[in-house]
Design a protein around this nucleic acid. Sequence first.
DNA 1: GGCGTACTAAGTCAAGCGACTGACTTAACG
DNA 2: CGTTAAGTCAGTCGCTTGACTTAGTACGCC
Lengths: 221, 221
Amino acid sequence: MTGRTVRAQQAGATRELILTAAERLFAERGVYAVSNRQVSEAAGQGNNAAVGYHFGTKADLVRAIAAKHTAQIEADRARMLAEAGESTDVRDWVACLVRPVTGHLAALRSPTWFARFCAQVMTDPALYRIMVEESLASPSVREIRDGLNRCLPELPADVGAERAAMARHLIVHTCAERERALAENAPTPRASWHDAATGLIDAIVAMWVAPVTLELPGERP
Amino acid sequence: MTGRTVRAQQAGATRELILTAAERLFAERGVYAVSNRQVSEAAGQGNNAAVGYHFGTKADLVRAIAAKHTAQIEADRARMLAEAGESTDVRDWVACLVRPVTGHLAALRSPTWFARFCAQVMTDPALYRIMVEESLASPSVREIRDGLNRCLPELPADVGAERAAMARHLIVHTCAERERALAENAPTPRASWHDAATGLIDAIVAMWVAPVTLELPGERP
DNA sequence: GGCGTACTAAGTCAAGCGACTGACTTAACG
DNA sequence: CGTTAAGTCAGTCGCTTGACTTAGTACGCC
């Protein structure tokens, strides 16, 4: 499996061209507001069915875009997780959740589109399952959940699940908002992705260790 | 302005029919995956252009749906805000942010669709501006921001803005996720909207009062 | 060196879209 | 009572969509 053939290289290049064109258009105009034709055109393909040929349906294309990025993020996270080891500091685990994402966005050449793409896919009733399969079911995220549970053994399991979901929402949509602001040359609360991650980690750590107000049964208004 | 004319009542009823049908379809299938024709049909209108007649474009329809709900939420919030008065407890202000939303969702007859609808609109590049105009620019939200700033005078303005956005993301998407789980008969971390609000408030209060890690300039990796 | 295969190009197709039109019904008003 | 206009209905228009078909091209393999 060296450089394969010239053939496969060209095909792979076309695939990549479609992937990046789709990512940009999806982020800027919305996944469902962009047709496969427009993607093919933007990727410089004469054939209006290029997307169909290389990927299949639009859902498959979305999955491919997600997979491309999450693979890199996962690798980063695994490396960071190995360093963290068996920490008992909540902040270390939360950092493993946040920093690989912001680091990936920082590494991509600005402007980026992936965060906005993710935010859209995560909220779409037809597509969010794809994102869940593609990224959330990763072993490293489970490992982080376990690490956090070890840090906070007295936290009820339900509240833990609730806060994990909150952390996910926070990361995805805060990054998307920052990315959008960058794309529009609007001011951002933080100067860099690194600083934005610090702000996210501050918030998520506090959220995770927050005291749990117990519900008195039968006080429903 | 009593009952107006019979004519206007019928027209208003049709409008309402379209509004609720659209809200349901948008939440379940996605705003852009549903055509105006399908909305008209679902609303029991023979004319495929009923939406166009009563509302105009799809964006106008989205705005009307948002306005219908935010009006009620705003009224609730204003009432709650009057009670809170000049509190110096962060929790009181956060409650004013959260409880009117969850209360509104609880008051609607289950199943509800508004939370999922909001989450989609807020993440769509073409529609989120509508939602911002329609709800975020409300005077009561500004008032809450001011109240929180008075509680936390030493919090940098940038971080305050950042955390306000985070609170918004948390409320919208946590409610949407709970609503989706309810619609699918999936388990939810909390038994009721009231309890879910308590969990949200716990998290948002902690996030807002979290210590701010100061950024050392030039430590970018 | 020629054949087969993987890829791209170009064009076609029915279906569905938003927008528009004109006819019909009926409340509203002088 | 007769006119007016708001609201509904049924149908048409041009256009775009995803899916499909066919033709062309050039690499890889033997």
